[in-house]
Design a protein around this nucleic acid. Structure first.
Lengths: 188, 188
DNA sequence: GTCTATAAGCCGATAGAC
DNA sequence: GTCTATCGGCTTATAGAC
């Protein structure tokens, strides 16, 4: 197998395992088994577990940037784009119920571990935060735009934590409806 | 040292360490060192790590029940009690910035680990949920009371995750103000 | 690029002396 | 009740054959 393809497979498997089981709870053996590699060969591609985490975060950053670009081309209005973000807790409802928010749970875990890469992981939140702020600025709320962006982020995290804990889809639906109402008061 | 006192010390140390570092990242050696016991002697008091976690959750449940009773006696009105809960993200602001919400982070970690005691930990949320529902019922919102209780819980979790990630006290203050405004529309 | 073998250390947990 | 000594297993990581 070519080096690049194997590396990509490792990052994909690690990404999924870190999300499903958590970073610390995932071992090299788990990732190697998922890819079909021996543990020994692993270190040819990544010299440490931190290096894999770094690659996973980079991949998630790239994936998020791509998703946000797609949302921008699919949704012509800023409020439509914000709503697209709000509804992610329904779109990815099954995963969030089972594993929580991939951004929130990674940040919480790395912050608690005092991990050096927590700063990198925080960048995932910043990506959404800046994008949401831009949409609120386009709606004419320049001064409060960052505040409003953080409010929408807080919504997503609150819903994700409780959805993960209680596995209640109706609760998620009600919270999205509430958010839709709130958002309509900010629509131009 | 008497058995009961040592046991209590172990539970206190484990409680703090599980909160600060996470359950999985805390080892027997960490707890033993914090209490000043040898690892070997540990098993006289608790036969497994799960048994310590069980005792920690029980202690947190008892502590939470006591706190809710205090809130009830200190705050005569249901909306005052709900506000007391909302302001916990300010009251415990420093801890939440450093370690997140003790209830939310434990539930997220145990849910992701597929731990058998996740159900017990969920009870911590249920304690707050039922208590908040009772306050909304007293305000005359019996039908929506559980929905409103979950909304207030979601607020606290969203704020805690982002406060833990960004360490921004002003953000917390703004969200509490927003929540105060929202709550005032439900006050009798 | 992939493998096996293995190191060094930490983990939860146990046995048995005192 | 507390200690030391130790077990078997899992962890990250390395060495070296192919």
């Amino acid at each position: 197998m070519s080096g690049a393809a194997t590396r990509e497979q490792i990052v994909d498997a690690a990404d999924r395992l870190f999300y499903h089981r958590g970073y610390e709870h995932t071992s090299f053996a788990d990732i190697a088994a998922a890819v079909g590699l021996s543990r020994g060969n692993f270190y040819y591609h990544f010299k440490s577990k931190d290096a894999i985490l770094d690659a996973v975060i980079e991949a998630r950053l790239a994936g998020t940037r791509h998703m946000l670009e797609q949302w921008e081309s699919q949704q012509p209005t800023p409020d439509g784009r914000i709503l697209q973000f709000v509804e992610i807790v329904l779109t990815n409802g099954t995963d969030i119920q089972q594993y929580g928010c991939p951004v929130g749970t990674l940040n919480t875990e790395l912050a608690k571990l005092g991990h050096t890469l927590h700063g990198q992981a925080r960048g995932l939140f910043t990506l959404f935060r800046d994008w949401l702020r831009e949409q609120f600025t386009l709606l004419g709320y320049g001064e409060q735009a960052d505040d409003l962006a953080m409010h929408v982020l807080a919504f997503s995290q609150g819903v994700a934590v409780l959805s993960h804990t209680f596995r209640d889809e109706e609760f998620v639906r009600r919270e999205v409806d509430r958010m839709r109402d709130w958002l309509s008061t900010y629509r131009k």
